[in-house]
Design a protein around this nucleic acid. Sequence first.
DNA 1: ACTATTCCTAGCGGTTTACTAGGGATAGTG
DNA 2: CACTATCCCTAGTAAACCGCTAGGAATAGT
Lengths: 161, 161
Amino acid sequence: MQVSAKVDYGIRALLVLAQAYQAGETKLLKSEEVATSQEIPFKFLEAILTELRHAGFVISQRGAVGGYRLSRSPKNIALADVIRVLDGPLAAVRGLRPEVVSYQGPAENLTDVWLAVRVALRQVLETLTLADILDHTYSAEVIDLLKRPDANVSRPMFSAE
Amino acid sequence: MQVSAKVDYGIRALLVLAQAYQAGETKLLKSEEVATSQEIPFKFLEAILTELRHAGFVISQRGAVGGYRLSRSPKNIALADVIRVLDGPLAAVRGLRPEVVSYQGPAENLTDVWLAVRVALRQVLETLTLADILDHTYSAEVIDLLKRPDANVSRPMFSAE
DNA sequence: ACTATTCCTAGCGGTTTACTAGGGATAGTG
DNA sequence: CACTATCCCTAGTAAACCGCTAGGAATAGT
């Protein structure tokens, strides 16, 4: 799974807005504020915020005191939804949904693998909300995953010879 | 997670070779046989098999009766290793390993999310071997994932308004 | 010698990614 | 009512990547 810059920036921007939301701030945040505080290219962020607005995650206002705010509580925005909007389906095989691709002969069971991958991703991304990330309140499942001793160890890419 | 054509083809090719291996066949399989039986573009498959050979998964022989075979038992080839060789790390954020990227302010905990995603992927792909897929002998964890009622249901991409 | 295969280098058209430029629409402020 | 600050929209773009192909050299059996 390659997390694109777009998704990374988008989620970070939403987290900034989520923090303001939780703090009860009424005033809107300008895209420039978000961009500089998170070191996101300004014009790129503008485009991303537009997509997030089209998807209904944020509400904007134009004009001199304009800006952005979350459309609803960060508790009700799951990461999976954000990623799907910005990047498409969580799991795809050659551009197709896992359950659509069909395999012949010894590859027949391969569909199961991609289905399992998708479920595994969902277990993490569907349960986690913006509020969870801010407040460090992860589900038991996610905590279990992070408890694994090798969670923060990268595996070699292993090119023999 | 986008499964690329390269990974899809590569794994299917390995499954074909794995089946021959398990059947105890001594003769080598030609890349053309594999390509046609799995409907993989021939020249593309050749390139992929070369990578798999460099990584030590397959052994080749040239000449009139040449071909390919697995270098070791399909029980000892995990999907995760194949994917890393053909496509790079299982999880990356803007091209970087999850534990390398650093976040500021409200995004601080985002690292945890990507780590959890990576562990979740590993749980599936690190345990599954080529033999498991052929024989339909999945680990308990994977079986649990596939048991979920919505495993084979795709989620809407949800554009509001 | 002949033939069938792998192996190697090179390339290529289309798509995507990560941005940028420029200006129009809108909403407050003096 | 001008002025200014913001969002909004269309366009474009350089570079990388993806999926795949061509052509021939090296090798091994017959």
